[in-house]
Design a protein around this nucleic acid. Structure first.
Length: 113
DNA sequence: CCTTTGACGCTTG
DNA sequence: ACAAGCGCCAAAG
């Protein structure tokens, strides 16, 4: 079998979705990126919402550090199943990211490509 | 084809 | 600092 990439993205993914997922996987260890930032780097500055929609569709073990994605406020975006953010916070803390009242100081941990 | 939904972001009060 | 409203775009029904 051909050597597949570590990013096993569904074939359903559109061109924009692949670009977004690629940028997302570029987030370095110990850093975080905002939805708008990822969308802009992918070439779609107005598709910040699509980034979130993509994370929702992302399968586990996709090799994408979804936990390094936060909103413009430096906090975990609130989604339906409340409490899931707790796990994300733990992972980021393990990477050295400091949380202040549940928020991250983007001026310190924001990814700067 | 039209309407609704969604892990967003910015502006205004 | 906080809340509400509006804008933007794609996927699903």
């Amino acid at each position: 079998m051909s050597a597949q990439s570590q990013h096993e993205l569904p074939d359903d993914f559109s061109e924009s979705a692949v670009a977004i997922a690629t940028v997302m996987s570029q987030i370095p260890f110990g850093s975080v990126a905002t939805y708008g930032q990822i969308a802009a780097l992918a070439g779609y500055p107005k598709n910040a919402r699509q980034v979130g929609g993509l994370l929702r569709k992302l399968p586990p073990g996709s090799g994408i550090p979804w936990y390094r994605v936060v909103n413009c406020k430096g906090e975990i975006s609130p989604r339906k199943p409340a409490g899931c953010a707790q796990n994300q916070i733990e992972i980021l803390k393990d990477e050295g990211v400091e949380f202040e009242n549940g928020k991250i100081d983007l001026s310190k941990y924001r990814w700067e490509p």
